[in-house]
Computed example of a mutant assay.
Amino acid sequence: MNGAVILFTNFGFSIKKILAIIIATLLLILMFPILAISSLGLPAMSFLANAPSAKAAEERGFYNGGVMPGNTYAWGNCTWWAYAMRRWANSPIPNTWGNANTWDDNAKREGYIVNDTPASGAVFQTDEGPYGHVAYVIEVNQISGDWKISEMNARGLNIVSQRTFSKEAAKAYKFIHNKPGAQPWNPQPITSPPPYGLGR
């Protein structure tokens, strides 16, 4: 007989009581995630119950969607989000560009326009940091020239956030646009309804 069982039986515990304690402990451990989510309140529960989208991720600050077929970039990272945003905007980019700091070179090699001019729907790219960073340009103010990006993993893994930059700041970054002669497209801002649905 197991030493722990002998110890418990010596203190007056029967096998049934020991099994009941083990089962109760396991159930309690399994309940922790449910209790943690429940503690976030009804808005979070409602969000998790519905099909997540880019719009919902922006509003809640994190993305809880399923696997996106074809998106081979590391889940929760900036590359995953930039690829997903372009795909949701019906203008997919290759899934073979590697780390963010190689996106501009790989895009040029494949014939994409890469420059320092932000545009709605373009991919923002920088070599800053150990792996670089990419994001999706969601808006360019036609009056001030300020531009806004939607990004993931700038504040932490899988956290979605936005930043606004001045017109002058664009000179320090790269922007990946469509290939020359590509079909013109007008991506909608992230706050709009679909096509920002999962898997689009």
Results as ranks from 00 to 15, higher is better:
Ile113Gln: 15
Asp127Lys: 14
Trp97Asn: 09
Glu168Met: 06
Ile113His: 00
Trp103Asn: 04
Gly111Arg: 11
Ser166Thr: 14
Asn106Leu: 03
Ser166His: 04
Gly156Arg: 12
Ile159Gln: 15
Lys171Asn: 08
Ile190Ser: 11
Pro94Lys: 04
Thr102Ile: 04
Ile93Gly: 01
Asn158Ser: 10
Phe124Thr: 05
Asp104Glu: 09
Asn95His: 00
Pro92Trp: 02
Ser161Asp: 13
Glu168Ser: 11
Glu139Ala: 12
Trp103Ala: 06
Phe175Gly: 07
Ala119Trp: 02
Trp97Lys: 07
Asn178Asp: 15
Gly111Gln: 13
Lys171Trp: 05
Arg109Phe: 13
Gln142Cys: 03
Ala182Asp: 14
Lys148His: 02
Asn178Arg: 02
Ala122Phe: 03
Gly145Thr: 15
Asn186Glu: 13
Ser120Trp: 01
Pro184Val: 04
Gln125Ser: 11
Arg163Ala: 06
His133Pro: 01
Asn101Glu: 12
Gln183Asn: 07
Leu157Arg: 05
Arg163Asp: 08
Thr102His: 07
Tyr173Lys: 02
Arg155His: 06
Gly129Asn: 11
Ala119Asp: 10
Ile138His: 05
Asp116Arg: 08
Gly156Phe: 05
Val140Trp: 08
Gly98Arg: 06
His177Thr: 11
Gly132Ala: 07
Gln188Ser: 14
Gly145Pro: 03
Ala182Lys: 14
Ala119Asn: 09
Asn158Phe: 11
Glu110Thr: 14
Gln188Met: 15
Gln162Asn: 08
Lys174Asn: 12
Phe124Trp: 02
Pro94Leu: 06
Glu168Asp: 12
Asp105Thr: 13
Glu151Ser: 08
Asn101Thr: 09
Gly132Cys: 03
Gly111His: 07
Asp146Ala: 12
Pro187Leu: 12
Ile159Cys: 05
Val140His: 06
Gln183Tyr: 05
Asn106Tyr: 05
Thr102Cys: 02
Val160Gln: 13
Pro189His: 10
Ala122Glu: 07
Phe175Lys: 01
Val160Ser: 06
Pro180Cys: 05
Lys108Thr: 15
Ala107Ser: 09
Asp116Thr: 07
Asn99Asp: 15
Asn178Ser: 14
Trp185Ile: 09
Pro184Gln: 06
Ala172Gln: 12
Thr164Ala: 04
Val137Trp: 02
Val140Lys: 09
Ile138Tyr: 02
Asn186Trp: 00
Lys171Arg: 12
Met152Ser: 13
Asn95Glu: 11
Phe165Ser: 06
Thr164Phe: 05
Trp97Ser: 08
Ala122Asn: 09
Asn101His: 08
Pro187His: 11
Glu139Leu: 04
Arg155Asn: 14
Gln142Pro: 11
Asn178Ala: 14
Asn101Tyr: 04
Gln183Asp: 05
Gly111Ala: 11
Tyr112Arg: 12
Gly181Ile: 04
Ile143Lys: 08
Asp127Phe: 06
Ala182Pro: 01
Asn153Glu: 09
Asp116Lys: 09
Trp147Val: 14
Asn186Pro: 01
Asn106Pro: 00
Thr164Cys: 04
Trp103Gln: 03
Ile138Asn: 15
Pro118His: 05
Gln142Val: 11
Ala154His: 13
Ala170Phe: 10
Glu151Ala: 08
Pro92Ile: 03
Thr164Ile: 10
Asp104Thr: 13
Ser161Pro: 00
Asp105Lys: 07
Gln125Met: 04
Ala170Pro: 04
Ile138Gln: 15
Ala122Arg: 02
Ser120Gln: 15
Pro187Lys: 15
